[in-house]
Design a protein around this nucleic acid. Structure first.
Length: 424
RNA sequence: GGAGAGGUGGCCGAGUGGCUUAAGGCGCACGCUUGGAAAGCGUGUUUACCUGAAAGGGUAACCCGGGUUCGAAUCCCGGUCUCUCCA
């Protein structure tokens, strides 16, 4: 969340940045600052009261040790009024803090100055394009047809065993899946990311730390008997490794990666856009995460973008990179680049990666800090990106690399799959 | 699932309800010492918030949350995690 300190310093600048998300938070910010002032004066009163009452208690202790019971009893009488007032002030503090927290949690991150204002995906800015996004000059089949013909993916079986959006991968389809994961992890390893295999369920604290809770409660599968949530992305367990931790400045940037299945309820999704692999309840993803010093984070964001470019080039897929506009960015991000690959048969762009810098927004919830050389504590910046999400990559591979009687695997990928062609 | 033991600072480890933010040790930092190092000696070594220009002062925190008490690391209740044994 936004830090109270940044609001004190830069209220209008933050409000102006949030205008780009088409929300006006000025009233909220003013209210927060009023509460902040009230909180401070209440704290001062409370501390003073506690100091006095501590002094009395010490007096009582001294008398008791010296066996002066009567004197001790006399002082005890004096403490009664303090007690009542401290309880009142403590309640007041808690009330104020709770209100501030609730309002603060409901405010999304302030976009970076390079982020443009905009209403939705149409206002996103294309910053890079590779390959041509054209229909192949012959008939192309959509991936769901290819997958069925070549017996790679069974959607109906998944629907039977679990439900829609939970496909089975089969034979070369399964091997392709595994090959892609291995390819992505290998590249992440070469780029210096430490691999983790994290838990696939998280508790509420972790959900709050990265910002899924309370904002997106309905998007996660919730195990109510155990108060656990299925992860919607590897970002959650990976980033939460550093919740409530102080890291050494010299260890930054910290680079982690991990392969995980991801689970999303996708409530309300239906229709053409969700056909085949386009939108699933369970899908595989390799995630890369970084923790950095504030001054380095945008350079690292660029590095992550380059890393993902390399992956897509290895897969020989046409793609483009968009810098999201304010209205299309996720709640917690300060800047986001989306990667989209061209689907030759569906003739549309499919999002396969989203790379973001959260600046201190997650870190303030996570309480992840480092001590600077000058001895002061600072929140780290957190970043993450998909590198990459599998299903739409599979869709694009099938569609873009199909020929008369099969699908040709990109050279870079073939060794990881164990075959270079798929044929019916 | 059942029974028991336990969670103290970066680590180890003490702690009859008051003089304990916490002994002692290790580690770490700085200084002295030394030809250099080690040893030795000395000093320092958590975080959050409030206050202050700063130095400093105040408050809170001994797994988490409640409670008892003038006063809780210490007593009580609930939760959680770890270990041992049983199923």
């Amino acid at each position: 969340m936004l830090t109270i300190q940044s609001l004190r310093e830069d209220k209008e600048q933050i409000a102006a940045a949030l205008d780009k998300r088409n929300i006006d938070v000025r009233q909220d910010l003013d209210q927060i600052l009023l509460w902040d002032a009230e909180r401070r004066s209440t704290q001062a009163k409370l501390d003073d009261l506690l100091a006095q009452s501590n002094a009395l208690s010490r007096e009582i202790g001294t008398f008791m040790r010296e066996g002066k019971r009567e004197e001790a009893e006399a002082v005890k009488v004096k403490t009664a009024s303090f007690k009542e007032e401290t309880v009142t002030l403590k309640d007041k503090m808690h009330g104020i803090e709770q209100q501030m927290h609730d309002v603060l949690c409901a405010i999304p991150n302030a976009p970076h100055s390079d982020v443009v204002a905009g209403r939705n995906a149409e206002d996103n800015v294309e910053v890079f394009r590779s390959g041509s996004a054209e229909t192949l000059d012959r008939h192309t089949k959509p991936h769901w047809e290819l997958a069925e013909e070549m017996d790679l993916i069974d959607f109906e079986l998944g629907a039977k065993v679990t439900g829609a959006g939970f496909p089975f991968y089969k034979g070369k389809g399964a091997k392709l899946q595994r090959g892609l994961i291995q390819f992505f992890l290998q590249k992440a390893d070469e780029a210096g990311y430490t691999e983790y295999i994290p838990p696939l369920m998280i508790n509420a604290e972790s959900g709050f730390g990265t910002g899924q809770l309370p904002d997106k409660e309905g998007q996660m599968y919730h195990m109510q008997n155990d108060e656990l949530y299925m992860i919607p992305t590897g970002e959650v367990p990976l980033t939460n490794i550093y919740r409530d931790e102080m890291v050494k400045e010299g260890d930054l940037p910290i680079k982690l990666c991990g392969y995980t299945p991801c689970f999303r309820r996708e409530a309300g999704s239906y229709g053409k856009d969700v056909r085949g692999l386009n939108r699933l309840h369970q899908f595989d993803k390799v995630e890369i995460v970084q923790l950095s010093r504030p001054n380095d984070s945008y350079a690292l964001l660029d590095q992550m973008v380059d890393h993902i470019k390399e992956l897509l080039e290895g897969l020989e897929l046409p793609y483009r990179i968009l810098r999201l506009c304010g209205g299309d960015m996720g709640f917690t991000a300060a800047m986001t680049y989306d990667f989209e690959v061209w689907s030759a048969a569906q003739e549309r762009w499919l999002e396969v990666s989203s790379v973001s810098n959260f600046e201190t927004y997650q870190a303030s919830r996570l309480k992840c800090r480092y001590k600077g050389a000058e001895g002061k504590m600072h929140l780290v910046h957190t970043l993450n990106g998909s590198a990459l999400a599998l299903p739409r990559i599979v869709a694009a591979l099938l569609e873009n690399h199909q020929d008369e009687n099969g699908i040709q695997m990109p050279k870079a990928l073939a060794p990881f799959c164990g075959f270079d062609r798929i044929e019916a």
